[in-house]
Computed example of a mutant assay.
Amino acid sequence: IDLGDKMEYYPEAVEERLNDNADHFKNLIKGILDEHLEQSGNPGIVVSMYDTELFGHWWFEGPRWIKKVLQWVDDDPELALTTAGKYIDMKPPQVVVNLPEGSWGQGGYHWVWFNDWTTWTWEKIYECEDKMESLIQKIKNSRKDGDLNRMLVQLGRELLLLQSSDWQFLITTWSARDYSESRVAEHYEKFSTLFKIIERYIDDGSIPDSSWKYINALEEEDGIFPNLEIKDFFGE
Rank of each mutant, 00 (worst) to 15 (best):
E15W: 05
S40I: 02
G85D: 14
A176R: 11
T82H: 01
L155I: 06
W120Q: 06
E219Y: 07
G31F: 03
D51M: 01
D166M: 07
Y109D: 14
I88H: 04
I45R: 04
R200H: 06
S40T: 15
K91M: 11
I125W: 01
G56N: 00
T121W: 01
D130W: 09
E123V: 00
Q39I: 10
K190S: 14
Q154F: 00
Y87K: 11
H57S: 13
F169C: 10
Q39G: 10
D23C: 02
L161Y: 09
A13S: 13
Y50T: 02
I66Q: 03
I29A: 11
L37T: 10
K131W: 06
K196N: 08
M151A: 08
L79Y: 07
E221V: 05
K196A: 13
S48T: 06
D20I: 12
G146L: 02
I224A: 08
W212I: 02
G146H: 04
L37A: 07
E53K: 04
H110S: 06
I1R: 03
Q154N: 02
L3A: 08
E186I: 06
S182P: 01
M151D: 03
P11W: 03
A13D: 15
P100S: 09
E199P: 05
E133I: 10
E219L: 08
V47R: 06
D34E: 13
K30W: 08
K26Y: 06
V153H: 00
E15V: 10
E229N: 13
P93I: 13
N149T: 09
D75T: 11
I1T: 09
L228I: 08
H57A: 07
Q137W: 13
L170D: 12
I215C: 06
A22I: 05
F233S: 02
K140G: 00
E101V: 11
I136E: 12
E35T: 12
F25N: 00
H110E: 10
E129W: 11
D76E: 05
H110F: 14
E127R: 10
I230K: 06
D222A: 12
L162Q: 07
V73N: 04
G108D: 06
L28C: 10
E8T: 13
L33M: 04
W58N: 05
L28W: 12
V46N: 03
E189K: 15
Y10E: 14
E53W: 15
L160Q: 11
E236W: 08
E236L: 12
S206N: 01
Y188G: 01
S142T: 15
P208R: 00
N42Y: 11
T119K: 06
K91D: 10
D2A: 13
S165I: 13
D178L: 03
L155K: 09
V96E: 11
K26N: 00
T119N: 04
W113A: 03
Y214A: 05
E38N: 11
E15A: 14
G107H: 05
R200F: 04
E123T: 01
A80G: 11
Y179V: 05
D2K: 03
D204K: 03
D5Q: 15
E8Q: 09
P92T: 13
W174D: 15
T193L: 04
F233D: 09
D178N: 12
W58K: 07
S175V: 04
L54G: 06
E12G: 04
K26Q: 03
E101G: 08
S210D: 02
D51F: 02
Q168C: 10
I32G: 04
M132E: 10
